[in-house]
């Protein structure tokens, strides 16, 4: 882009972009509102969040089952590893949901989502 500082309305634009982005993050459930729990979520947004939680549970369990089934097929230990991995997958699903609900996003380790990596320089303009 051209020299950012010279645009007459660039500050205004940045502010609006940031506001829109915050709204985006709130909608996608990444940045939870203040702790009082009274989130002005509409039905649709709540539904979207609930769907995400469901997806996390189901996919992790499905991956667990697939791994168990694959290992059984390979090692010839028919039902046992699958039974074990159903539970492990379920555990992974619950872990994912815990991370999602407590603001850390799915499977991004035990750090809060959106927290900055060690060296973050906030206000420098993004350039190549």
């Amino acid at each position: 882009m051209t020299e950012g500082g010279e645009k007459p309305s660039s500050d205004d634009f940045d502010a609006r972009l940031r506001a829109a982005k915050t709204a985006h993050e709130e909608r996608s459930g990444r940045r939870r509102k203040s702790a009082d729990g009274s989130e002005p979520k509409t039905g649709m947004e709540g539904l979207g969040f609930a769907l995400r939680v469901g997806t996390e549970l189901v996919t992790a369990t499905a991956v667990g089952v697939a791994i168990g089934f694959g290992l059984d097929y390979w090692l010839g230990t028919k039902p046992w590893l699958m039974i074990l991995f159903v539970f492990l997958g379920g555990g992974a699903g619950v872990t994912n949901v815990y991370r999602l609900v407590s603001g850390m996003d799915s499977g991004v380790g035990w750090r809060r989502a959106g927290t900055k990596p060690p060296k973050g320089d906030d206000d420098t303009e993004y350039k190549e």
Binding site: L51, R52, T55, T59, A60, A62, V63, G107
Partner: peptide
């Protein structure tokens, strides 16, 4: 460790299902 690995492997699936289902 198995739970973490399954959780890691479920990433592409949940990423795909979220977009497709919506």
């Amino acid at each position: 460790i198995p739970i973490e690995i399954i959780s890691y492997l479920s990433r592409p699936l949940s990423l795909a299902i979220r977009l497709f289902a919506n």
